[in-house]
């Protein structure tokens, strides 16, 4: 083993690689294309993003009340989760068309707002028909959970609003005489007590849900990051083929292996020299992949060796 001989293999390896005009493509352009493809083709744009449901709505409500079907649709359009709209609302003329589209998989969910919805929600109990669909049992489950959670949330908020309104209209002087000294009211007035009590009727358990995001959250940048590392792995695999198998076959074909074997250079010199030159080229490709991945595709690569 002699440095001079190893150097011969390294220098000739790198020079021949870059003399080949297609080398620039395979070493720099192809890894960049691969990384961009990974980020924008292999990973669909929706991957790792909060879900937006395609929601079809049929509005049959003609109520004149302050809150009616039209305002409900506005609420549906505006509602957000973590900065993303929860529903992509599409208006339908009739229920048949809505169901048809649901069956064809064009919609995730559908709501039919019956006539009198506005009046009922103000003075009585409103009714809604909700359809839930999806591409798989899994997504139906998710869509159903999203719909029911939204409607639950909406329902409770309407309830609390109605309590507020009720309290405004309630006669302030109406307090039963035998109820003025109840210990359980504490230092509150009867009206205050009543408001609390109604709230308890509408929402007996008011739970606070806190989302704690894990470090390795599978959001979009992380997914792109994993794929970028995968692209690195692929480059390593292929350059291994190139350096190892293809290079020796090529040497054999053009007769240089024979000549090399007849010199004092050993197989170890050749192995080390070719490996190092391959690694140098691979490093350049890896830099191209990582730079493109991080700065162009927005990959988030977490270095966690342990």
């Amino acid at each position: 083993m002699k440095w001079c001989r190893i150097k011969a293999f390294i220098v000739s390896g790198i020079k021949t690689t870059f003399r080949e005009k297609s080398a620039v493509f395979w070493i720099f352009i192809w890894p960049i294309i691969l990384t961009l493809m990974v980020a924008y083709v292999f990973i669909p744009p929706s991957a790792g993003q909060p879900v937006t449901l395609d929601l079809g709505v049929v509005n049959l409500d003609h109520s004149e009340s302050p809150f009616n079907g039209t305002i409900f649709i506005d609420v549906l359009k505006e509602i957000e989760y973590n900065g993303t709209k929860l529903f992509n609302v599409k208006i339908y003329d009739n229920e048949t068309k809505l169901v048809d589209d649901l069956r064809k998989g064009r919609l995730d969910a559908g709501i039919v707002i019956p006539n009198g919805f506005g009046e009922n929600i103000t003075y009585a109990q409103a009714k809604l028909v909700v359809y839930v669909s999806g591409n798989s049992i899994y997504s139906i489950q998710i869509n159903r959970a999203i719909m029911s959670e939204f409607l639950h949330f909406f329902s409770i908020n309407v309830g609390l609003k109605k309590i507020e309104m009720t309290m405004k209209y309630m006669n302030m002087s109406y307090v039963p005489a035998n109820m003025t000294t109840q210990a359980s009211w504490g230092n509150k007035s009867f009206i205050e007590f009543l408001e609390e009590y109604f709230k308890g009727l509408v929402l007996p358990v008011n739970s606070t849900i806190i989302e704690e995001t894990p470090e390795a959250l599978s959001n979009r940048p992380s997914i792109v990051g994993w794929y970028v590392l995968g692209a690195l792995g692929m480059m390593m695999l292929y350059s291994g083929f190139l350096v190892g198998a293809a290079a020796v076959v090529e040497e054999k074909e053009r007769g240089s292996l024979e000549r090399i074997l007849s010199t004092p250079a050993s197989e170890i010199d050749m192995l080390i020299g070719k490996t190092v030159s391959g690694l140098i080229v691979l490093t350049l490709s890896s830099i191209a992949i990582i730079v493109t991945g991080v700065f162009a595709a927005g990959a988030r690569i977490t270095w966690n060796p342990f």
């Binding site: 053009r254 007769g255 090399i260």
Partner: peptide, 8 residues
């Protein structure tokens, strides 16, 4: 075969 490296 002369055993030359064509790209050098």
């Amino acid at each position: 075969e002369p055993g030359l490296i064509p790209d050098l």
